[in-house]
């Protein structure tokens, strides 16, 4: 079923703040096997010019994707999440995430297209810190595969 084009440009309310924890950063870095000391050692992070340990570049996806769930679960949009796959992912950083950040995400539907029966949805997530400063923007392309013929 084609999605309603009138949802293009719709912006959802900002999420409740997500606090970036240093142990969560460590857990993530260990899970991807990345021993870069900027993720776990405050002194090493400071030596690189960061005020505290920073998070790996893709860490923020867990936060923006949860926020995108508002869009995905919007009953008025009518996306069939059981058929959704992740098509593309992009990030543009103003600065890396760091321990202690309290981040909110504002999600916007950028485009809706239908190709060969697949619904293609581009969602932009703008991430701001507790001071209102822009940290990173995430673009997520979701593809809802066409339902098989009954």
């Amino acid at each position: 079923m084609a999605l309603d084009q009138s949802f293009v440009g719709r912006t959802y309310p900002p999420t409740e703040p997500y606090e970036v924890g240093r142990e969560k950063i460590r857990e993530f870095a260990e899970a991807v096997g990345d021993a870069n000391p900027a993720y776990t050692d405050t002194e090493a992070a400071r030596a690189l010019g960061h005020p505290d340990v920073i998070a790996p570049p893709t860490f923020v996806f867990a936060i923006t994707f949860k926020a995108a769930g508002q869009v995905v679960a919007d009953p008025q949009l009518g996306l069939d999440y059981s058929r959704v796959v992740h098509g593309d992912q992009k990030f543009a950083y103003n600065r890396p995430l760091r321990a202690g950040d309290r981040l909110t995400v504002t999600s916007t539907i950028e485009t809706i297209r239908t190709m060969a029966g697949n619904d293609i949805l581009d969602i932009r997530g703008e991430v701001h810190d507790q001071n209102g400063e822009h940290v990173v923007t995430a673009w997520t392309k979701l593809v809802a595969r066409a339902a098989e013929e009954a």
Binding site: N36, L48, G49, P57, D88, Q89, F91, P96
Partner: peptide, 18 residues
């Protein structure tokens, strides 16, 4: 990229297609 530059904070943009 991050192992090459040393500082993961040096990444300005990053995108992929799955």
């Amino acid at each position: 990229v991050t192992d090459w530059v040393g500082d993961p904070g040096a990444v300005v943009e990053y995108g992929v297609r799955f």
